[in-house]
Design a protein around this nucleic acid. Structure first.
Lengths: 348, 348
DNA sequence: ATGTTATTGGAAAACGATTTCCGGAAAACA
DNA sequence: TGTTTTCCGGAAATCGTTTTCCAATAACAT
């Protein structure tokens, strides 16, 4: 295998000099830089990331922590977009990604998790969809031993950042739009998981709307479950005008129930997943660009790794109306979702 | 960080001895083993996989190569199950997994791909859904530089194995069942991608059925696309009794088209994805256990890495009839799909 | 007691980078 | 020309393992 040593010999310089050139250190003249770069090109040299990771505790190995707790297939789309966004951007920024599932952390205490991460020379974490009762993850963030970016959990300190969309505003807007379009006079709100950070935010959004419009609202806990949303709809929808759901999956469950009851109620969802096209009727929802969210999370993590301070980042969203025709048309456009992966590629 | 050196000191033995104990080498007495293991336990030692990977070109770092070419969201479910199966089992077998998307390999030649894999100290690959025209991947397998397991591509040599279900039989059976249940007299077959290995196999299965039953069959290329299946159904379904599709996504497209035309034709699919529950009518399909397939692929890769010879593995499948109620009921059962991840965990 | 053979444990050289520290040449100044 | 400062490049230690090779001890036969 062609190593940094071969490059050094070819360029007629020392190993350390090559390393300096590769990592953009100062104190290297343009001339030697040129020599080294030429040797790199001639030998087709690619640095061994494993050796780099071992040598400098700095070199970017990053863990992607996905939440598989929710068995619903709909989350697969979201998780895949998270992955695509993460890995695509990570390649660009020269970060290695190790994917971990939350289930692998079950029953582990802080010390064990830290040891595991260290054993993998991991210095940064991306945590997607952590809930309020994830004790170990909270400890992990508090300990500040790693650079961490959380998605959908607003926890910020010196070495960890948070990124999400404005949940409150998004829920407010999509509900308002749906209410207005249909001249609704009351709301049935099916809320998300009690222990999710987004749940309270979204609830506040729809509450603000209800107060502002001075209309009655019934709130029920749907736990992000299609089945529970279905049951709650059977039970309560007759009494209310508009069904606002904290997730698309619940919106689909609600819509199917309404169709089975053969009554009409406007329904809106949250997330913008493809499955919305298969609900039977079109619905408003909030489209989150999960690929972009993940991609920005990686950029932020890189910033933290480079010494930046933790911060809160709020990305934008989009109100959309989803229907079958659009969804299957979109399936044909290959580039859309994997787009980010095409840039970058293997080298640099 | 507690290293092998600390363990050696604690146990009063040499570093190499600790390594031997850890890796189950012979020529270590029971007594010293005990001492070392005790020291490991006392110090809570976890070997640094990065150092191990660097030192021995053997240490199990494995790449998971996913195909994101197809933009359809339905493949997300399959890919996530592949990932869950892979990572879950890999943790058990002490393999590190690096996830790669096919798009990252675009426009790379063999040499570049090999260099990339080497730079990551990767010794084994799991390739999911490779197509006949993936030139570099074929070269990679031929070169026999890495241990490779392909899923759904029957390529075997000394250092690579293949794993899939019996595509021909599965397609035959599900089509036969659907034909028989509905007393069909003719078939419209919507085939998959021309360059997919499974496509020809499945086609042969349905052809065998048509010959056996002596019934006419019209074959059209649906490219695994929901939209194309939809269009083909509008165009040809009136003339045939039963619509047999090479994938669930096409089956859904066909079913929607039939419902819009307001004519009834039995439709069957292939794969058993959740989306089938949202098609509007229940359909027969072939359920593949993707998690298990991936899990077995990892086991097989491990066997190759340990010096085994390449072989072909055929797993079983299941004929099922999918409907909405079952699908949303299944969503509630958390454990199902991530089940495999719960075993193993971080240690060992 | 001596010589031979297993058996076990240790010393040390990789693996391929990063990074610190230091010396020499060149540039700047008097 | 002599002295000081600046700038560059190289030698060598380090990261935490694996693995080879060798020495020491024990066990056995003679």
């Amino acid at each position: 295998m062609v190593s940094i040593k071969d490059v050094a010999k070819q360029a007629g310089v020392a190993i350390s000099t090559v390393s300096k050139v590769l990592n953009n250190y100062p104190n290297v003249s343009e001339e030697t830089k040129k020599k080294v770069n030429q040797a790199v090109a001639e030998l087709n040299f690619v640095p061994n990331t494993v050796a780099a990771a071992l040598s400098s505790k700095q070199s970017g190995r990053v863990a992607l922590l996905l939440n598989l707790n929710n068995a619903a297939q709909s989350v697969d789309e979201i998780n895949m977009q998270y992955m695509a966004g993460t890995i695509g951007r990570a390649v660009e920024l020269n970060l290695d990604v190790i994917t971990i599932f939350d289930s692998m952390l079950k029953n582990k205490n802080l010390e064990e998790v830290v040891r595991y991460l260290r054993s993998q020379s991991i210095t940064g974490l991306l945590i997607f969809g952590m809930s309020k009762d994830d004790k170990v993850l909270h400890q992990l963030i508090d300990a500040q031993l790693f650079k961490i970016v959380t998605v959908d959990a607003p926890i910020v300190n010196a070495s960890s950042s948070a990124i999400w969309i404005d949940q409150e505003a998004a829920q407010y807007e999509v509900a308002k739009k749906t209410l207005t379009e249909n001249k609704g006079k009351s709301i049935l709100y099916l809320a998300g998981k009690k222990n999710g950070y987004v749940t309270g935010e979204r609830l506040r959004g729809v509450q603000r709307l209800a107060e502002e419009k001075k209309i009655p609202m019934l709130v029920r806990n749907g736990e992000f479950s299609e089945l529970q949303a279905r049951n709650l709809t059977f039970r309560y929808a007759k009494k209310k005008d508009v069904v606002v759901c904290a997730s698309d999956l619940m919106a689909i469950g609600a819509m199917r129930a309404l169709m089975e009851m053969d009554i009409f109620r406007p329904v809106c969802g949250f997330d913008g997943i493809t499955l919305m096209g298969y609900a039977g009727k079109q619905m408003n929802t909030v489209r989150q660009d999960f690929t972009r969210i993940a991609s920005e999370a990686v950029v932020e993590l890189k910033r933290l790794l480079d010494g930046g301070e933790g911060q809160q980042i709020v990305l934008d969203y989009e109100l959309v109306r989803m229907k079958y025709e659009d969804v299957i048309a979109a399936e044909e456009k290959q580039a859309t979702r994997s787009g980010i992966c095409f840039s970058g590629g293997i080298n640099e």
